[in-house]
Amino acid sequence: MIGIFKNLVLINNDVTARYPELHILPSHRDYVLDGECIVYANNKPDFELLMERFHTRKEDKVRYKMSEIPVTFVAFDILRLDGKDLTKLPLIQRKQILDEVIKETEHIKIMQYIEEHGELLYQAVVERDLEGIVAKRKDSIYQSKRVNDWLKIVNYKYSDDIWITGYRKSKFGLLAAVKNEGNMRKVGIIEHASITVRRDFYQYIRSFEMREEKDYVYFQPYVKVKIRFLNWNSRGNLRIPVLLEVVH
């Protein structure tokens, strides 16, 4: 998310009215920030609550949820200041400018960072079951796309106890389930896999017994697979699962 105070823009979508708690400016200068909105629950970011706030648009509901599900904007970069482009400056210099310009408030914070001890930081992230870290070269210029100077290191979870019961006819999507007291419980749709893994999967089930409906094809026997994913959500579903291989 890019914060342009007094406007919040998400991929060219003005979402200012959805976050009234962020309207109190931390500085009266003219600037553009790069950062993210976060909702905390149990001292950890909660993606589902964040999405609940994001999809709330009616003013009365926004005001209610502002007190029930408060949002924090965490700034991790500054792109412009008083009309001057800062994107070609080294990251460490932009961080220093960010610290000088932005004074933290209850709902607007500056992302903390450490130098040199990335492995220890990642270990702490894993121990606290957080999502991951981003490693950046401190002399790097600002990039709006993925580059080797900026690496996202995700704390993925892995499971080889997921069963596939069918697939979607249109775009790639495998119906995932787990065994629960002898029954299959649906846990979401796997929409990500390499081309090779997809080909191997479809080849593996080619001789299986199939049953078709309007949007899905179901097959027997079920297929056990290995996946990686971010976490289990509050409904017991997989968040962003990726098919890695067929177990059997």
Rank of each mutant, 00 (worst) to 15 (best):
W150N: 06
K157S: 13
K157E: 02
V154L: 07
R128H: 13
K138Y: 09
K152G: 04
K169I: 09
L130A: 02
L120T: 14
V126C: 09
I141V: 13
L121E: 06
L120F: 09
V126I: 08
I164D: 03
V125Y: 00
S140T: 05
S140E: 00
E131L: 02
R146Y: 03
I153V: 15
Y122L: 07
A135I: 13
E131A: 09
K145C: 04
V154A: 05
K138G: 13
K157L: 09
S144P: 03
Y158L: 12
R137M: 11
R128F: 06
D149C: 15
K152D: 04
E127C: 12
D160C: 14
A135Q: 10
K145L: 06
K169V: 12
D149I: 11
K145E: 11
Q143W: 07
K138F: 07
G166Q: 08
S159F: 08
G166A: 10
K138D: 13
R128Q: 11
V125I: 00
W150F: 10
I162M: 07
A124I: 01
Q143A: 15
E131K: 04
R146S: 02
D139L: 15
S170M: 11
S144V: 14
G166Y: 12
I164Y: 03
D129P: 03
A135C: 14
W150P: 04
W163L: 08
D149Y: 13
K136Y: 07
I153Y: 00
V154G: 01
I133A: 01
V154P: 09
K152N: 08
R137G: 09
D139K: 09
D129N: 10
